[in-house]
């Protein structure tokens, strides 16, 4: 149903609503919105078959700007609402837009369960490591020591890593993108859409008002080549301005290290080849953090399994095959009854 071919070719405009976009000028959300409006027509999707579901926060305004069906729900609960939508109509293409506070703090529980159940949803978590809408308090992904109105002397909490959380919860698809990276983001959206099951995408999103450049040390264009590894299935994990650096596996320490090809006897053959179906590798890749290590983006883990809805509806079909379609009269009068004359 989602894939039906449209007679006319749709464009980004067909996916943009008439509502004025109200993010702060220069917010990373704009780039993500544009990229989504541009990518959806290429996926062969029609607006009426798409639902964007969000919770509360800056990112959660997203559905209002899409000319699709949209539900701007309550704080943290978008995964639950989206699950209900899929259980009512599994043919819809359902996208959840959430943030680090919405998806990992107040809604962390729902995120855990929607991932382990493998509900067929595309979940985009805009991570800006701050609460934007409520004016800049530290969030669960804020690094320890973050100074904010609610942590004037620096936060003392350890941060949660979105992708490590997702893998721990049993996600079968985990990917990463950067707001400004318009070249690679469409492909991440495409793969998320194609994956049947819960597709978890962390998007590093710059909040220039409350947390400007928090990802600067790897997202900034000037350092991108040196600090980003673009994971591609079957390809060596090579990066660097001269494509001379790579990730290697230190078997003694059981960890990933960086190496320069041509130094210390390292050749291209020593560089790890990305296998997106390897959970152990995925766990190690998402744990790499700057400044010591580059950040891995792209499709980090994709190892599909049966979806939640498929199994739920499968059971119903099996049951119908055995007992036939439900007959209320029959079940009500089954068992011990008696007649009064």
């Amino acid at each position: 149903m989602n894939e039906q071919i449209s007679p006319e070719k749709l464009t980004a405009k067909d996916f943009a609503s008439d509502q004025e976009v109200r993010w702060c000028p220069g917010c990373g959300d704009y780039a993500i919105l544009k990229c989504m409006q541009r990518t959806l027509p290429e996926l062969g999707l029609r607006p009426e078959n798409i639902v964007f579901v969000s919770g509360i926060g800056c990112s959660s305004r997203f559905p209002h700007y899409m000319a699709t069906y949209g539900f701007h729900t309550i704080h943290g609960r978008a995964p639950a609402v989206a699950t209900g939508i899929k259980l009512a109509n599994p043919d819809l293409s359902v996208w959840v837009v959430t943030g680090d506070g919405d998806g990992l703090s107040i809604g962390g529980n729902h995120m855990l369960h929607v991932l382990r159940r493998n509900v067929d949803l595309n979940i985009l978590l805009f991570n800006n490591e701050i609460y934007g809408l409520t004016k800049g308090q530290y969030s669960p992904t804020s690094r320890q020591g973050t100074k904010s109105p609610s942590s004037p002397y620096g936060s003392v909490e350890g941060a949660v890593s979105a992708c490590r959380f997702a893998l721990g919860a049993g996600a079968r698809f985990v990917a990463r993108a950067i707001d400004t990276d318009q070249k690679n983001m469409p492909d991440v959206f495409r793969r998320a859409h194609e994956n049947k099951g819960a597709s978890f995408v962390e998007i590093f999103q710059n909040c220039l008002v409350y947390n400007d450049q928090v990802f600067g040390e790897f997202a900034d264009r000037s350092v991108a080549k040196e600090m980003q590894v673009h994971a591609e299935h079957g390809e060596p994990l090579i990066y660097g301005s001269d494509n001379d650096k790579g990730l290697i596996f230190n078997t003694k320490k059981m960890c990933i290290e960086t190496a320069t090809i041509g130094e210390n006897g390292v050749t291209e053959k020593d560089i790890l080849v990305h296998d997106e179906t390897n959970l152990s590798l995925a766990n190690m890749l998402v744990a790499l953090e700057p400044p010591q290590m580059p950040v891995v983006v792209g499709i980090i883990y994709a190892n599909p399994a049966a979806t939640f809805e498929e199994q739920i509806f499968g059971q119903a079909e099996e049951r119908k095959a055995i007992v036939g379609k439900g007959d209320l009269k029959a079940i009500m009068s089954a068992g011990r009854t008696w007649t009064v004359t």
């Binding site: 639902v51 579901v53 539900f71 729900t73 309550i74 609960r77 995964p79 639950a80 609402v81 989206a82 699950t83 209900g84 939508i85 259980l87 009512a88 109509n89 819809l92 529980n109 729902h110 855990l112 369960h113 739920i312 509806f313 059971q315 119903a316 049951r319 119908k320 007992v323 036939g324 379609k325 439900g326 209320l328 079940i331």
Partner: peptide, 29 residues
Amino acid sequence: LKEFDVTTFQAEDEIAAICSAIGASFAGA
């Protein structure tokens, strides 16, 4: 009663339970 037009969902908590029902109603169930 899976042979009827009824899908049951044991949610992770009470909030998810009602939210899933609201989502389903939005989608026409």
